[in-house]
């Protein structure tokens, strides 16, 4: 095992190492995750960043053990030293109800449309034998904490009467109610307006810090992830390609994909022709035997197409690239007029 997976001191709250996942598609197992390794310390925030099909959401499904029938995993997923994949039904129920909470992109799909906000919030507490009065008081107090001032009125309303931003705050309150140790937020603000996103992220960040919650934050937005997490893991085609401190990822990114992703994002402060990573994001099952990014990488060599690089320590990053040392600080993406049209997206197999 790599040394970075065993830092000195206490065990991390979450340790995922060399996770592999196959899911049956029309009876055939299909690779969804190749090699996912990361750790989240107690109270630490980790961003899982990637484009569609990178496996970031599937990784959280493994963390919650919400997998389709016939899914096969390999590698370790440990929560506080206990294997999540090995939990029996009772342990799993306890883990899901009191250790982890999850916030999804679309709160409307995660809340019962025919029960009130109040009923939704107090349900779990009532189940845990908390009195109705106390459950309601706790729910109202939490709604106020997430910036909902007229909480008693909101408690009597139904989900359709609330805006997306307000409903997402209800979901944050709900996630805090059971006092979990880990919060998983899967693109929680992607469907929201940018000003609402700022509010919701600020509230999420504040609640998490106050309670010392660990966070796994899934997003496609590197800048957003950098603002609210301590470390970022960049995923592509079911593989973690790079892990680094969020604070200076822009300056220190080592993997050609990370650098490319940073260069493709249109800036609000400056106009230049964007450097576009050629091709389209591939899914894990389409990747060849070598580096999963090799066919889109402008720096790929023969070895990259045949030999899959493992995640290893370079500087204070973990990076899965054969040429990381050699390319360090030398990856510049020149904007070439016709060049980016020459190698455009390849067709997706059906």
């Amino acid at each position: 095992m790599n040394s970075w997976l065993n830092p000195p001191g206490a065990d991390p709250l979450v340790r995922v190492s060399h996770l592999r996942l196959d899911i049956p598609v029309r009876g055939e197992p299909r690779r969804v995750l190749h090699d996912v390794s990361f750790e989240v310390g107690a109270g630490e925030a980790l961003g899982l960043v990637g484009e569609s099909g990178s496996g970031k959401s599937m990784t959280t499904r493994v963390l919650m053990r919400l997998l389709p029938h016939g899914a096969a995993t390999d590698g370790d997923v440990l929560f506080d030293g206990t294997s999540v994949t090995g939990m029996d039904r009772r342990a799993l129920r306890r883990y899901r109800s009191s250790e982890v909470a999850m916030i999804y992109q679309d709160p409307r799909a995660a809340i019962n449309p025919v029960s009130t906000v109040g009923a939704f919030l107090t349900e779990a507490l009532r189940e845990a034998k908390v009195s109705r009065k106390e459950a309601e008081e706790r729910a109202v107090a939490l709604l106020r904490e997430v910036g909902i001032t007229d909480a008693p009125r909101r408690m009597r309303q139904y989900p359709h009467q609330l805006s997306g931003g307000l409903l997402q705050r209800v979901m944050i309150a709900s996630a805090m109610l059971t006092k979990p140790r880990l919060l998983i937020a899967d693109e929680p603000t992607t469907a929201l307006d940018v000003t609402t996103q700022e509010e919701v992220m600020a509230i999420l960040d504040e609640q998490r810090r106050e309670r010392g919650l660990a966070l796994v934050f899934i997003t496609h937005d590197l800048d957003l992830a950098a603002a609210v997490t301590d470390r970022i893991a960049v995923m592509y085609a079911g593989t973690v390609l790079e892990t680094a401190a969020s604070a200076n990822l822009h300056e220190t990114a080592l993997h050609p994909y990370t650098v490319g992703l940073l260069a493709s994002r249109p800036s609000t402060v400056d106009v230049k022709r964007l450097w576009a990573i050629p091709g389209r994001p591939v899914s894990a099952f389409e990747a060849g035997p070598g580096c999963v990014f090799a066919d889109r990488c402008p720096f790929a060599q023969d070895r990259c197409g045949t030999e899959r690089p493992a995640l290893r320590t370079v500087d204070d990053h973990q990076v899965a690239c054969h040429r990381a040392e050699e390319l360090r600080g030398r990856i510049t993406y020149e904007t070439g007029g016709d060049a980016d049209r020459a190698h455009d997206e390849q067709t997706e197999p059906v």
């Binding site: 909902i148 009125r153 931003g165 700022e198 600020a202 800048d223």
Partner: peptide, 19 residues
Amino acid sequence: AVPRPGWVPRRRATSGASA
């Protein structure tokens, strides 16, 4: 409100009004 390097999300007004 646009995330960018060095950006930190900030809470504006407590809004109960925007339903």
